[in-house]
Design a protein around this nucleic acid. Structure first.
Length: 187
DNA sequence: ACCCGAATAT
DNA sequence: TATATTCGGG
């Protein structure tokens, strides 16, 4: 099992419900090297404490059907499954595990970062004139990349477009910015 | 070689 | 929904 969620309760639940191991993303090469040990451990215990999920558990019908069709899970459906369903085949789908190991860790733009972002944007003469590289320089924040800024810039522009298209133009909207699942924003 | 921004993946 | 990565082009 693999997730960015590293909370012990979630990890415990995953392993308790049958996962051989729980990899926290971004996955470290070291963790990958040890996967087999966990599989062996599971096998030695003969799946002792493993119990199939019942219909009462949070597994949707699609996942069940997929599993019965021979797939381990929808998450592991993979390229072949997508092709069968007529899904788009892009190069992203063809990436191998190598790139996964190089995955950057997540950077969340909290209110604080957003304010610095806005300050920089204003210095550059507005949202239309501001550009990632310069915004990053003016923000003067260590640990974030121009890509991080570019992504935020794109999101923010889309947000502004939505606003103007639905009449909230000009007024403060508290809906922009959900940080850690809590609504905030201002501006 | 570097940077953008739209599109797409995670 | 939020963020990361890709991709085509300037």
């Amino acid at each position: 099992m693999m997730s960015v969620d590293d909370s012990s309760s979630v990890v415990t639940k995953g392993v308790t419900h049958g996962a051989c191991d729980y990899l926290i993303k971004p996955v470290r090469l070291e963790a990958l090297r040890n996967i087999w040990q966990h599989v062996v451990k599971r096998r030695k215990n003969e799946w002792k404490d493993f119990e199939p999920l019942t219909s009462a558990d949070d597994v949707d019908q699609h996942q069940k059907a997929t599993a019965e069709a021979g797939y381990t899970s929808s998450a592991n459906e993979g390229i072949i499954g997508k092709m069968k369903r007529g899904g788009k085949m892009t190069r992203m789908n063809l990436r191998n595990e190598t790139s996964l190991l190089l995955q950057k860790s997540l950077v969340l733009f909290g209110l604080k970062l957003h304010r610095q972002f806005m300050a920089a944007v204003n210095q550059l003469g507005g949202i239309d004139k501001a550009v990632p590289k310069k915004i990053l320089e003016l923000m003067n924040v260590a640990g974030i990349s121009t890509e991080n800024v570019a992504s935020h810039l794109q999101k923010y522009r889309l947000y502004l477009k939505r606003l103007s298209g639905s009449q909230h133009l000009g007024s403060m909207d508290p809906s922009f910015y959900k940080y850690n699942y809590q609504v905030r924003l201002f501006m």
